[in-house]
């Protein structure tokens, strides 16, 4: 380290650092006072923080601080507070029938607000933000209900799901008539044309054998979907005369479904969301337009 002589800059009267670049010298000004005191203040603050807040690690634990701060305890408290705020109206909602909810503006507002929020978070990914569904995911705005559109039916479906892992799930599966070789290709083609022409009201293929289709239908399909094709909500067998087919109502789509049916799964929500939110959701879904 080369010693340098103290050199005072003539113009400012401040000592230089002794560094020089092509004749330019660096003044050794002191740190600004405001900055320095702020720096000292942060050191004092840290000492106070160590005493009051969780900070230093020890051998088997850490100092928890005089204020007993805990982020997790805080959130539990906030969460409990929010829950108890809603508890009174929530409990009334649980007790109330659909008619009572409809005639009590306070309950209806509560159910639609919390149901709407829960719908956006949890249901919209499959049923769409407008609840109009997608192919394979039912439209909740229309009058077509595979598992029933009454308040109780909707509540049951949301709570336990469809073909879910919950023990109380709704369950129904159509046989794979083609894959498992119950019907041959001609019979499947005939029955798909029959369903399209007579029940769905879509165009059958030219020269389709509707009589054979009718026989095949009565022998194989009517047990669940009914002689008239009106379906069965107990079995989850869709109404085949309804306009919205989950997987399409063209002959081709019906053939595919008879051959090797797709079965959608709806998860159970009762454990994830709790019974009050599920009831709010049921009221919300029921209110969308198709509720029965």
């Amino acid at each position: 380290m080369a010693e340098h002589k103290k050199e005072i800059d003539k113009l400012s009267g401040v000592e230089t650092t002794g560094h020089e670049w092509d004749g330019l010298k660096e003044l050794n000004n002191p740190l600004p006072k405001w900055w320095l005191y702020l720096f000292y203040a942060t050191i004092v603050w840290s000492v106070g923080y160590w005493v009051l807040m969780p900070s230093w690690p020890l051998v088997s634990d850490y100092t928890s601080g005089l204020l007993g701060h805990s982020q997790r305890a805080n959130v539990h408290r906030e969460f409990e507070a929010a829950m108890s705020e809603r508890a009174e109206t929530g409990n009334q909602l649980m007790e109330a029938s659909l008619e009572e909810i409809r005639s009590t503006p306070e309950l209806l507002e509560f159910a639609l607000a919390s149901g709407g929020a829960a719908f956006a978070d949890n249901c919209a990914p499959c049923h769409g933000t407008g609840a109009t569904g997608f192919e394979g995911y039912p439209n909740l705005q229309d009058d077509v209900w595979i598992w029933g559109g009454s308040m109780d039916d909707i509540l049951q479906t949301i709570s336990y799901g469809v073909r879910s892992e919950h023990p109380d799930t709704r369950f129904g599966e159509m046989l794979a008539f083609g894959r498992d070789e119950i019907l041959n290709d001609d019979e499947i083609s005939a029955v798909a044309n029959y369903v399209a022409a007579e029940l769905a009201g879509t165009e059958p293929e030219d020269g389709a054998d509707l009589d054979t289709g009718a026989t095949v239908y009565m022998d194989n399909c009517a047990a669940c979907h009914g002689d008239e094709g009106l379906g069965s909500k107990e079995l989850g067998a869709p109404n085949l005369t309804a306009p919205n087919y989950l997987y399409g109502n063209t002959v081709e789509a019906i053939e595919a479904q008879v051959n090797n049916p797709r079965h959608g799964v709806m998860p159970p929500w009762i454990d994830r969301l709790g019974e009050t939110t599920v009831k709010s959701l049921a009221v919300y879904v029921h209110s969308l337009g198709g509720g029965q």
Binding site: N122, A124, P125, C126, G128, F134, G136, Y137, E165, R262, G264, V265, M266, P267, R272
Partner: peptide, 20 residues
Amino acid sequence: GKYSDEWHRDHLINPRSVSP
């Protein structure tokens, strides 16, 4: 467990098919 396997498949193949 929040969504069905089918939803995950549809969504991974084309997210716009279920979430426009």
